[in-house]
Each structure stands twice: as C-alpha cells, then as structure tokens.
Design a protein around this nucleic acid. Structure first.
Lengths: 343, 343
DNA sequence: CTGAAAGCGCTTACAG
DNA sequence: CTGAAAGCGCTTACAG
C-alpha cells in the first residue's frame, strides 16, 4: 500500500510536512503544499485509518448496539439505525454495528479494544445489562430509550407519558368515554420495555382524571395472534369507541380486522396509533398516530455523542435526558363516537 | 489504558512472551503462561484492535454496504443485514456499516483507508457503480445480488429465473391458464434491479411454453398506490385466476383489497408471492410464496468472503456465482381455479 | 516554514 | 523456552 513515506519521497519533503499539509495543522509553503497535493493525487494516497487511530487515539468510529428482541417489531429498529448511521456519516464518523444477542459482551469488546470513540445504545431497557459496562467504559455513550438509571449517559426518548396523555385527551375531547389501549406483549414489559408502561400508566391516569374508562391490554407482536387479540378485546368491550395502539403489529393487523367486521374508522371506531411516518407509509396505515420519530431520536443521540467525543461539552457539563414531544399526525381516523344504538 | 507492556511488567516477562502467550503462536512455559493469564485478569487487559491491525494488516472487520433505494422495501434489506452481521460475528469479525447513498464513495473510503478486510455488497444492481471500486480494491468482496459482470467477485443470489418458472409452473399444474404478475416498480428495473426482469422474463417464457397467458405489470412500492395498482390490474384482467407477486408492498396490500372485494384466496384467486418467512410472519401474509432466504444469502456471502480473507481459497481458485434454489412455501393460497361462471 | 525523531500498542522474525 | 528489537503507518512535540 502507498504510505505517507511514499508521498513524502515523491513530493521531496519530509513525512511530517506531508502530514501537516494534509491536516492543515501548521503553516506550509505554497510550493510544498502543491507538491504534496500532486504526489497524493499521483499515488492515490489515503491515510491508513488504523495507524492514524493509534497515533491520535481517535478512531472516528461510533459503535451502534442494536437489539432485536423477540416480540418486538424489527422493522421499527431499522429506522433508528438509519438515523444513527446517516447522522454519524454526516459528522465524519463510521459505524461499527453490533446485532449480537449479548449486547453487554459486544459493548465490552468494542470498548476494551478501543475500536470506537463512543457508542449509541438502541432499545434500552429499564434495567439494561449494557449500562454497567458503558458506565465503566472510557468512551461516552448515548441512549435511545429511557433506563431506570440515567447517570453517566445522555438519554433520548420519545415522551411516552405525554404521548399517553395526549392520545386519551384527544379522544376525550372528541367525545369518547370508553377506550381500549393495546400495548406490546406483556413479555416486553417484563424484561424492561419501560416505554410500554410509561405510556400505559400515563394514559390510565389521564383517563381517570377525565372520567374515561380505559381498558388497557397487551397484544401479541406476531401475526396472526395479534389479529385474534384485537378481535377478542373488541368483543370484550363492545361499548368502546376509541382504540389506541402502542404496538406496531396491532396497527398492521387492524385494517384486515376492520374489513372483516365491516367497520371503518372513524365512523365506527376512532383509531390512534403510535408509530413512525415511515412505518405508516410502508404499511399503508392511514390511522392518525403519535409520531415516534426514530430518525430524529437517532440523530439527536449521535449529535450529542459527537459533542462529547470531541470535547465540545465540558467534562463537568451534566448529562442530559431529553424527551421528544409527541406529535399527533392526523390522518383522519378519529372523530366523534358513533351515535348510540337506540334503546 | 492498560497495554501489553503493563501486562509484561506485572507478569515479569517480556512483551513478546505476553503476545505469544495470548496468541498461542509459540510454546510457553506453564509458569509464564499462568503469570501472564493472572496479570491479564488482574489488569483487565484487552489488546488494542488498531495496534493489532497495524501490526498484522488484519482488521477483523468486514464492511457492509447496504443500499436503501427509493421504491424498494426497506424492511427486506434488514434481513440481509442481520444475516451478514450475525454470521460475521460468529466467525470473529465485526461489521462496519455503510448506509450512505453514495455507496461507491463509502466503499472507496473503507478500502483505501484499510478499515476492513473485505466487504459485502447488498442490493447489487446490474450495472453497479460500486463494482469498479471493488475490483480495484485489494480486499475481496462478496455480493448479494447478481450483477451483469461477475468477474473478480463472489456472487450469491436467489435463482430468480427458476423462481419465475416455478411459480408459473405451479399454477399451471393446478389448472390456471391466465395469470397476472406484479413486479416491483419499473423504476427499479430501469436502474438495474436485475432480479425483477430475471423473474419476469423466465415467467413469461415458461408461460409461453405452456400456453398460459401472463399479464406482466409493474406495481408501485408504496401505499396506497400499490393498492390502486392491484385493483386496476385485477379489473383489467377479469379472466385471470392466478396472481404472482414479486413486490413486497403488493403482498402487504393485498389482504385489504381482497377483503374489500369479498374475494378470498385460493377460492376466487390463487396467490403466490416472493418474500421471506420473516416478512410473512411479521405482516400476517398467509400466501404461499417463494422464500427469498435473505438470512441464508447473507450467511453464504460472509462465509465465502471470510474464506477469501483468510486465504483458505487458493488465489487461483475461481470466483463463484452461487444461486439459491427457490423453495415454494405452501401456505394454502393456491388451488384449482374457480369454475367458470356459466354462460 | 521544515525535518528528524519519538511514540501510539501491537506482532514477529531474529538470536540465543 | 525467552527477550531485545524492528516494524506496521501515522501524528506531533521539539529543535532549528
């Protein structure tokens, strides 16, 4: 391979001059600069990233720890990944991706062997086994997802509590007094998927405060089970006029179910989901929804992480926990509840 | 950070002894080995990956060049990525992920700066601008997707031609004589999505050979457009009794459409898709389909790539082009065509 | 404005 | 079986 020494020889200058000409870290005569540039072009020189990393202690690589858990909707994860990856690239960083099950191990490997300057953790659980590893690591970390303990890390998440309140409130104002909330599977909650209960508890509380009945249930993340779950919960609560979905699979399965039953939204049932624009458009979901903003969250996490990496944040600057406010995208699937059948 | 020198000092041996004790590349006395192991544990030593890469010219990293193109179904790409990533890890490699638009540039950067030992290209086009870069690179590359020119690379893909024949044949044997094929958008074909025309041409030919009428059309990759496309093509060919879908969005949109029209498969229409098991289960698609095997293709590509990287393949061993035979997963959505309406 | 040299943390012939 | 030393390809004080 062509090295900085080759460039120096061809340009007739020293290796340090080549280095400085390229980095611009000290003044260089026009003549030297031109000869270096020519030599670089002629030889097709690109610095060896490993050697540079060794010399500077900077890898210009960010570790991305994705977690694909059973009972969660994989395509949703992709949107977060893309937000992280694209933003990192814009800021000059590459992405080292881990999708392995044992995220703590992957993180330890990346961190201990100094492969990355910082890491982004996706799909963070309430008690996340990657967090102790991250806190002990010399590299900074940014999370997408709110853990129970946020010390030592920057945290970004959708404000799921506000989302829960917003959804109940929206339907309440339209006149609904009996609602159903279908969340992710209970299994997700048990292993620490805090966003599930954050939304659910807030929704419950808002409902109570307004005198609204809210039937909160868990649904499967799989087809066709979730279709049956939805059917069962609708049957169980015939008086419910509004349906809130914090479960992508449920949203994807709902159109078929409504068709089967000859129901349409919002005529017979008002429907409100929580998913991304991208998801809606890919799966033809014309339900109004709280935007989960995966790309934006990924972007925020990377931006903050890079600020930490590059020392733009003073060491004693506090860590942040930043919530994205839920936005309700109106696609026309909510309206006044149907008039009660006479009698 | 703790270096090999720290370990050597604590263990009371030389740095080379530590290195050899860890790599096992030369015999070590039991005593020395034990002291090294103790010191490693005590200090929590992990070799610096960059330094090791510089010394060995091996990064133990594989570049993964994903391409998310407009009009293609993003979640499908994720399955390939997971196949690649998980297999790489099993074989001891990490993944450097690129999702940027300019794949050729990303590849050049990874390759020139020696960040990777080899690369996997996903979603390869007939004329793929990443290929010239790859051929000029010192690292080997494996492709998922068949390009027009396969020289210098290992290629893995589903046998889309066989898939096209298989699907037509399957429906022909059930008695169908008029079929519809809905492919990806024409736009995908125009920019080199060879799998679209490979399947379509083979299907056309098989249909001709059997005296079957095949209406080949392109459909949108987006909702709700694809729903309208499907409706239009069904209206245009009322005599068609079989529907072949080489378009994930179409498959996802079909259930609603059939419900709307009061049709069911296979009673009124036999349906045959081309997508993965994972896709089918995530989106509740109970249509029989040719399995696109993304995880398997990703796995095959990485395995071959690692063989090349590690020199298990002799330099003069020819490059391979390996097709996965399509398997038809029967989910019961095909059957005999409906009896003709009398008259 | 420039060069010689040290150093980043490893691996691996070389010599014993 | 082991150690001293060279080398991988960079960057960056240091000295001029």
């Amino acid at each position: 391979m062509v090295t900085i020494g080759d460039v120096a020889r061809v340009a007739g200058v020293s290796r340090s001059t080549v280095s400085y000409a390229l980095s611009g870290k000290r003044a260089i005569s026009d003549q030297a600069r031109r000869r270096v540039e020519d030599a670089v072009r002629e030889l097709g020189y690109t610095p060896n990233a490993g050697a540079r990393a060794l010399a500077t202690s900077q890898t210009m690589v960010i570790g991305l720890l994705a977690r694909f858990l059973e009972d969660e909707f994989a395509p949703a994860m992709l949107q977060y990944m893309l937000g992280v990856s694209n933003t990192a690239r814009e800021l000059g960083y590459d992405i080292l991706l881990s999708t392995e099950e044992d995220g703590a191990r992957a993180l330890r490997r990346m961190s201990d062997s100094r492969m990355v300057d910082g890491v982004v953790l996706l799909n963070v659980a309430h008690e996340d086994d990657r967090l102790p590893v991250l806190r002990a690591a010399p590299q900074p970390g940014a999370l997408v997802g709110l853990p129970g303990d946020c010390t030592g890390v920057d945290v970004f998440d959708l404000d799921f509590e506000e989302a829960g309140r917003l959804m109940v409130d929206h339907l309440f104002r339209l006149g609904h007094r009996e609602l159903i909330l279908v969340s992710q599977p209970e299994h997700v909650v048990e292993r620490g998927g805090a966003y599930v209960w954050r939304l659910q508890n807030a929704a419950q509380e808002a409902a109570r405060a307004r005198g609204v009945t809210l039937h909160a249930t868990f649904g499967s993340s799989r087809q066709p089970e979730i279709g049956r779950d939805l059917a069962a919960v609708l049957d169980a609560h015939p008086g419910a006029t509004g349906l809130i979905l914090n479960n992508e699979a449920a949203a994807a399965a709902l159109p078929s179910l409504l068709h089967e039953r000859g129901l349409s939204a919002p005529r017979d049932l008002s429907v409100l989901g929580r998913y991304s624009e991208e998801f809606a458009s890919t799966f033809s979901l014309h339900y109004s929804a709280v935007e989960s903003a995966p790309d934006r969250l990924g972007r925020m996490a990377v931006r903050q992480l890079v600020r930490r990496i590059e020392g733009e944040i003073a060491p004693d600057d506090p860590y942040v926990v930043r919530f994205v406010s839920p936005e309700l995208v109106d696609r026309g699937s909510t309206g006044a509840p149907p008039a009660r059948a006479p009698g």
